[in-house]
Simulated scan of single mutants.
Amino acid sequence: MRIAVLADIHGNVLALEAVLADLERRGGADLTINLGDCVSGPLWPRETFERLEALDLPTVRGNHDRRVAVDPADDTMWASDRYAQERLTSAQREALFALPFMLEIIPGVVAFHARPDHDEKYLLDAIVDGQLVRAPLAAIQRRLKPLDPACRIVLCGHSHRPELIRIPGGPVLFNPGSVGAPAYDDDTPPAHVSEQGSPHARYGIVTLGGEGSDRFETIAVDYDHEAAARQAEQAGRPEWAHALRTGFMPKPAWQGSA
């Protein structure tokens, strides 16, 4: 069985279309799973929602899918969520909120957005000197405790960082990276950035061949990221434009002077 894994599209319909075209060139997949955070961002939230709706992919709810559904928006709503919220219908927002927190794709293969018990906490990552890095193995193992011990493959997103980790005596953990947002900053203490390091759209393919012979691929696809950057600039988000062009964040204000 061949499973395509998409995560963190964030309203970037251009990146999504490039990923879908690349997947088709590679012979497609038996199943394509979407790990959430579908529309939040200063790009094309409604167009992305409508494209995903037509695809009808098995999809889990990300933290931004939940946040976009808040109605009415208030002062605590992040700018990217507000931008998407204002451009979606109430029915579209309700559909995002109704997405499941977790899916078992087939026995032993589960998908969720961030962690098995929380949609906004990191599973595979730690924050060191303002950057996301791989978390210590013991910390990852603690975070996996809510999972069924029979689980052998975990598909997750949220951090926008591609990762592949085999837990000794436990499951393989796979994060394909972000389709549509190659970098972000988060000023929630402790403030940090996540950077994929290039503007490519990322996704993954998992080929199930039985325990011990599964294959995991992380794929980076070029697309018209300049058009996406210009869209972010028109929406008044120059930091998003920089991230879309480079895969890095401009130096956030919270980092202070060098």
Rank of each mutant, 00 (worst) to 15 (best):
I167P: 02
G197I: 08
V179E: 01
L173S: 04
P168R: 05
G170S: 13
F174P: 04
T188M: 14
G170R: 06
Q196A: 09
E195S: 04
R166P: 05
A183V: 03
S194V: 00
G180P: 02
E195A: 09
A181K: 02
P171R: 00
P176C: 07
E195Q: 09
G177Y: 01
P190F: 11
V172F: 09
G169V: 12
R166Q: 14
D186N: 10
G177T: 06
G170E: 07
Q196C: 11
D186I: 08
G197H: 10
A191S: 15
G177N: 03
P182E: 09
H192N: 05
S178R: 08
I167L: 10
F174I: 03
N175L: 02
A183I: 09
D187F: 14
D186E: 12
I167F: 06
D185A: 15
A181S: 15
D186Y: 01
P168W: 06
I167K: 02
P176L: 09
V179K: 02
Y184W: 14
V193W: 01
V172L: 10
P182W: 04
R166H: 14
G170M: 12
I167R: 03
S194N: 06
N175W: 01
D187Y: 14
F174Q: 08
G170L: 10
P189T: 13
P176N: 09
P182Y: 00
S194Y: 02
H192A: 00
F174L: 06
V193K: 00
S178P: 11
D185M: 15
P176A: 06
P176M: 03
A181L: 14
G197L: 11
H192M: 08
E195M: 08
T188W: 12
F174E: 03
P190G: 11
V193M: 04
I167Q: 02
G180C: 12
N175E: 01
I167A: 05
G170Y: 04
P189E: 13
V179M: 05
P171V: 10
A183H: 07
S178G: 14
G177D: 00
G180D: 07
H192W: 06
Q196P: 01
A181P: 04
G169L: 10
P176K: 00
A183L: 01
D186W: 02
S194A: 14
P189F: 07
L173Y: 06
A191H: 10
S194C: 09
G170W: 04
P190A: 10
S178L: 11
P171Y: 02
G169Y: 12
P168L: 10
Q196K: 11
D186V: 03
D186P: 07
D185P: 13
N175F: 03
R166C: 12
R166F: 12
A181W: 00
V193P: 00
R166W: 13
A191N: 09
S178F: 04
D186F: 06
T188P: 07
F174N: 00
A191L: 13
